[in-house]
Amino acid sequence: MTEFLTKIFGSKEHRDIKKLQPIVSEINSLESSMQPLSDDRLRAKTDEFKQRLKKGATLDDILPEAFAVVREAAIRTLGQRPFDVQLMGGIVLHQGKIAEMKTGEGKTLAATMPVYLNALLGRGVHIATVNNYLAKRDAEWMGKIYRFLGMSVGVTLSSHEMTREEKRLAYQADITYGIAQEFGFDYLWDNIMATRIEDKVQREFYYCIIDEVDSVLIDEARTPLIISGERTDTSDLYKTINRIIPRLKGADKSELEKRGIEREEYEERYDYIIDDKSSTRGTASLTESGVAKVEKLLGIGNLYDHTNIDFAHHVTQALTAHTLYKRDIDYVVQDGQVIIVDEFTG
């Protein structure tokens, strides 16, 4: 029945493309009117669009002409002409949907059109990439189009690469590139560490395009963003916990299952269990008997009572470090410091 209806009405993908086709045709029809314009007149379109928006026009109203302007700017600055499939991808991104494009279909160029369109409102547009290299590369590469059209472009990098003032300037740009995680860290800093409004670097959020959205919002979303301030010296606690972890007995969950050992049995026999299927790196968690053993070794009551939160945190982190992290694979020691290797970006 489903196949029969699909033959009559077409698949959802075909119906979606059919809806986009009239807009693409309108953009294509404007190409001949853009080609004769001088660089200055093409650039002046940006101010013209902003004025039309102030007078009540919507972004959808000016979308065809704005996309046509970006296409012509791309030809003049990069020597690349966005194809119809890229126009469709750009429209879908403007609509707040996910655009899946194959390798080689030019998703980076496709994104320039909705980015430019939404930046016309002056509220700031963010492009979130997966690493610093792509953020800097795309800001320079695609930035040629935006700057040609009178838009400002900024890049926000990790805190050790730029000052808070440099970050603030980057966020004031019409278009800001950065790592998805860094946008998150900057948000946390503004809302936790900043004591004055003028210390904050971000402005109100409006529109964002996320590259590799499945990786950023699914895979990397498992890793929490943590920002910390000054704390009291906990070196003695580190040393204490570090001596306790090697005294615990652990086992690999998959190996136990292969041997036919039931959960109730291994929960009693082992202090912690390693589950290498629960995430890319795996997890290590205490069993009930393991919790009891840790409590005895530390000389405390309930490990997970709010008064023992520091103990619980250090035990969890130490157990993970001892069982899952391998030197020069998951972390490196550089200049006397331990640096964690990001499992997604390296």
Rank of each mutant, 00 (worst) to 15 (best):
K97T: 02
M1S: 15
D330K: 02
I300G: 03
H322S: 12
T320K: 13
E288A: 14
T46I: 08
A44R: 13
K19E: 11
E3V: 15
L30M: 02
T108D: 02
S235H: 11
L319T: 13
L188E: 07
V130H: 07
S25I: 12
V291Q: 14
D271N: 15
H126E: 02
M1T: 14
G106P: 02
A57I: 05
S254G: 09
F185C: 07
L42F: 08
D310A: 14
I127F: 03
Y146A: 09
A74C: 12
E255G: 08
L59D: 08
L225I: 00
F148H: 14
V115S: 07
T156S: 15
T280H: 07
T240K: 15
K102S: 01
A170N: 03
I197K: 15
S32L: 08
E220R: 09
K296P: 05
Y270T: 07
T129K: 03
L117S: 04
E26V: 03
L248W: 03
A135K: 02
R81F: 10
E267G: 11
L217H: 08
I241S: 06
L169Y: 10
M142S: 08
W141F: 06
G56R: 02
T129W: 00
H126Q: 03
K326W: 10
M151C: 15
I23Q: 08
L303G: 10
D84N: 14
S215G: 04
L5K: 14
L237G: 02
R81H: 14
I340K: 13
D84M: 05
R41S: 14
E3M: 12
E182N: 10
G184F: 05
G336V: 01
K54W: 00
L217F: 11
